[in-house]
Design a protein around this nucleic acid. Structure first.
Length: 493
RNA sequence: GGGGCUAUCGUCUAGGGGUCAGGACACCGCCCUUUCACGGCGGUAACACGGGUUCAAAUCCCGUUAGCCCUACCA
């Protein structure tokens, strides 16, 4: 086979949906695995809902997820693209579509249809009254429409494609297996809407554009949501009409909400932007999404430990196989995503984490984070790397940037004992703020006063942070810094 | 209504004739511990239903039920 080519073809009619990202991820993994190309194509033929803003949201969402495309639009420039098959926005490809439609018309593989909405509705009523299913130019409706009319181009008309009437259309799906559709369950469908005037070919429809694009872009593997499985038998005869080889198809299962219904707003976050804002690592989102409906086989066995769950991108690419994909829909599990996120945060180096954490720090403590030295940042990150999310980490570092606004009353009562305050006074005198220096001084105080570690540590936390929760006590002291520690302790002495 | 897809712990799944039906997340318990966490150990928990085929069915076949998708001059 020639080089593998996959594509992700979203409609810019809203946010970038998490289900779309998963489909894109599968396309991306498959292309990467086989050393192929991954195309981003914008399906914007729905003029009323498509916007440039939505296109930018898609591009930025893809980029954040680390799903780079080899061919497709250039971010922020509607008229530019990269790749030999452009443009990659369908509305910029009208000339191609019209030429292809004319080709079909010339070969009598398609025909002009002047049936109005009203006449079709009337015919539909007749058929349904007889207890049958209405299909254009099929069954009782055969010969009632324009299939044999041979309309010239003199009046505005839609264009219908002549579909086979007998036998089965078989979709050779890589995930679902061969799927048979009786030809008589399909009818002559519209490939181009009614044009603006006589002889004008209107805006072509989705199922038509997809075939033209996938052919022209030399797509070898059509990997898409399984809501498109039923569209495929419409498209297959079109490939035949163009005399082009059929690509391979793989219809991946949908992602459902926790209640098993189609994932929608009421389940919480559905757009990739929201996941970004939650403080998730893109690598965690990739892994969580990939593992929905895909179980990698490592040396022939499925993932069988927590350790093996934590796949790197390289491992995912190497292991990815459509044969290991589930046929059924999967429910989205936020708990699992968060666990993955936590694990990935834990094992990342502070340098890897810093660029992802930075936006959250900048938002919470404007200017302050950037002003810190690398050494300080490293310690801050390492001290909070147990968090479930970047937002947790940012929040856990509040004590390092702000004096406590108030104090946890119960904690004050419990830990701010007279003897603890005596010990705090001595903490003020610590000269050495290295880890070992702090430890030595700390232990000396404990010994002198007969205090337990907990008693001093908690008293310090309350004094420094306002609450009995913070990173390790030496980290806490070091991050606050000597002068500020002394200042915050002052009011308790 | 017609056509299509799907069905194993709460969730993601392994297992494709003989398994104590395995793992991960979540949950519960214990341990560790300077707080919160992390970590370690252990536990609860599933083959949708009904018929076949077979010595033997979660596994193969047929139904049923349920969910989802398509059935637009939306994508």
């Amino acid at each position: 086979m020639s080089q593998v080519v996959t594509r992700f073809a979203p409609s810019p009619t809203g946010m970038l949906h998490i289900g779309g990202v998963r489909t894109a991820l599968f396309c991306w993994l498959f292309a990467r695995k086989h050393g192929g190309r991954f195309i981003l194509r914008i399906e914007d033929t729905d003029l009323s809902r498509s916007t440039d803003d939505n296109i930018r949201i898609i591009e930025e969402g893809m980029a954040w997820c680390g799903l780079g495309w080899d061919e497709g639009p250039v971010v922020g420039d509607p008229s530019a693209w990269v790749g030999p098959h452009g443009p990659y926005r369908q509305m910029q490809r009208m000339d191609l579509y019209r030429a292809k439609i004319q080709e079909l018309l010339d070969k009598n593989l398609a025909y002009r249809c002047r049936c109005s909405r009203e006449t079709i509705d009337a015919r539909r009523k007749t058929v349904e009254a007889a207890g049958k299913v209405f299909q254009y130019n099929r069954g009782m409706d055969r010969g009632k429409g324009c299939a044999a009319a041979d309309h010239d181009a003199g009046e505005p008309a839609a264009i219908r494609f002549r579909m086979p009437e007998e036998g089965d259309i078989v979709v050779p799906d890589l995930i679902k297996g061969p799927t048979h559709f009786p030809a008589d369950s399909l009818d002559d469908w519209i490939i181009a809407r009614t044009g603006d005037g006589p002889g004008v070919i209107g805006v072509p429809t989705y199922n038509f554009c997809v075939v033209v694009d996938d052919t022209q872009m030399e797509v070898t593997h059509v990997i898409r949501g399984d809501d498109h499985l039923n569209n495929t038998p419409k498209q297959i005869p079109l490939f035949a009409a163009f005399g082009t080889e059929l690509p391979a198809f793989a219809h991946v299962p949908m992602i459902l909400g926790a209640d098993g219904a189609k994932l929608s707003k009421r389940h919480g976050a559905t757009s990739i932007t929201e996941y970004q804002a939650m403080g998730l690592l893109p690598s965690a989102v990739r892994l969580a999404l990939a593992r929905l409906s895909w179980t990698p086989k490592i040396n022939g066995h499925a993932v069988e430990s927590a350790e093996e769950e934590l796949l790197t991108d390289e491992q995912m690419i190497q292991l990815f196989d459509l044969a290991d994909c589930q046929k059924s829909a999967a429910r989205f599990d936020m708990d699992k995503l968060q666990w993955l996120n936590q694990k990935l945060i834990q094992r990342a180096s502070w340098e890897e984490l810093e660029p992802h954490l930075r936006p959250f720090m900048d938002k919470l403590y404007p200017e302050a984070w950037a002003a810190k030295a690398d050494e300080w940042k490293a310690q801050a990150i390492q001290a909070t790397q147990k968090g479930k999310s970047l937002t947790d980490m940012a929040e856990a570092l509040r004590f390092a940037f702000e004096r406590p606004a108030d104090f946890d009353e119960k904690a004050v009562e419990k830990f701010m004992t007279p003897i603890a305050k005596l010990a705090l006074r001595e903490v003020c005198a610590f000269p050495d703020y290295s880890h070992s220096g702090l430890e030595a001084g700390f232990n000396a105080i404990l010994e002198r006063h007969g205090l337990k570690t907990k008693e001093l540590a908690q008293a310090l936390r309350v004094a420094l942070c306002g609450r009995p929760v913070s990173p390790g006590i030496f980290d806490t002291l070091m991050l606050v810094g000597r002068d500020e520690v002394v200042a915050r302790l002052e009011r308790w002495l």
